[in-house]
Amino acid sequence: MSTQEQEEAEKKYDPLDTTLKFVDRGDDLDPVSSDFFSLRAEMSCGHAVTPESLTQWCRSQLNEGNYKFRCPALVDGITMCNKLWSYKEVRRLADLDVEEMQYFEENMARLAVAEYCEVHSCPRCKTSVERKNLSNLCVQCVVCTADLKKSYQFCWQCDKPWKSPGAGSGRCGNDGCVNKDLQILWTCKTISLFDVVGVDSCPSVRACPVCGLKVEHNQKYCKNVVCPRCKEEFCFVCLKLKRICCQTSSPFTICPDGVAPRQTSIPVWKKKITGK
């Protein structure tokens, strides 16, 4: 038996596991697999999946920046099921091995943290440091401050020790300190949106107007994109939110204001804390 065959053989449900509900049918319940002859287990939403298809779908969601897994099956061929699957359910039904569990849990934790706060590794001790003031490049590492018995501050942008005398300054005082994200926005190539009438020269990278995350357009379909971090949908052409842009133009025509110029600053995300 080859290594691949061994891995596939290990990736099976335990038929003796009485906590799982198995279905053996050749229908279209599996939302992400076309293999109609594999034994499936039923998810909490009622749709059934194989271990392979569930792992594949959830991994693709992680790669797109989503740490909450929802069922992609179509109901009546039109509406997505979209029911939330708990990680406990995914871990058990996907039959993840140790390496896969580590990959899932590390990335889920990273994405969850990024949703609520700005975290960066200290260049000296490598511990995670949170930046509470998103407009201040100067951050202090409490671990290094305790270790050195004096304040240790570094630049969020270039990772070098902070030199500027004003802790609230937007410049650290180090030569060559530049915002790499801004550089990308300034120098990225231009693209055409083939399905949008009148858009033949648009910057290929934009900063989300809500949270500042760099976003690219796949050059297919309409001009609107959904930010993978804040989930806001905005027009890639004029940089207005979709609900505003669609008041004056359709998703497949150029905006009345034309193509917005290259961005010279990155929006700071003003997150809404709900207390939940």
Rank of each mutant, 00 (worst) to 15 (best):
F104W: 09
N133F: 02
H120Y: 09
D181V: 08
N107Q: 13
V129N: 01
W186C: 03
K180Q: 15
V143A: 07
P165K: 10
Y103A: 03
E106L: 08
R124G: 00
H120E: 10
C158H: 14
N136L: 00
W162Y: 15
G176F: 10
S128C: 05
Q183I: 07
S121F: 04
E99D: 10
W162A: 03
N136P: 00
E100N: 07
Y116D: 06
Q183S: 08
C177F: 10
L111M: 14
E106I: 05
K150M: 06
C125M: 01
L185N: 09
F154H: 05
G170A: 14
N133V: 07
C158G: 15
C117Q: 14
Y103R: 08
S169L: 01
D159H: 15
S128M: 10
R171P: 01
K160Q: 14
K160G: 12
E118R: 10
C125Y: 00
Q157V: 08
V119D: 13
C117I: 15
K132Q: 14
W162N: 00
S128K: 09
C172E: 02
S169M: 00
C155L: 06
S135H: 09
G168E: 12
S128T: 04
S151M: 07
Q153R: 13
T145F: 00
R131C: 03
F104D: 09
E100M: 04
S135W: 02
S121C: 13
A114C: 10
R124A: 02
C155S: 07
W186R: 15
K163R: 11
E130N: 05
R131A: 03
S151C: 04
E106R: 12
N133L: 01
L134C: 11
K126Y: 10
D147I: 00
N179K: 06
T127V: 13
V119F: 11
V139S: 05
R131Q: 04
C117R: 15
A114L: 09
M101I: 12
L111I: 15
A109L: 13
D175C: 14
S128W: 04
E118T: 09
K149G: 02
V142A: 06
C141F: 03
P123S: 03
L111W: 06
K160Y: 13
K160W: 04
E100Y: 01
G168N: 14
Q140L: 07
C172N: 02
K150L: 08
C138T: 00
W186N: 11
R131F: 01
D147A: 08
W156K: 08
V178T: 15
Q140C: 08
V142W: 11
Q183L: 11
C144P: 01
C144S: 05
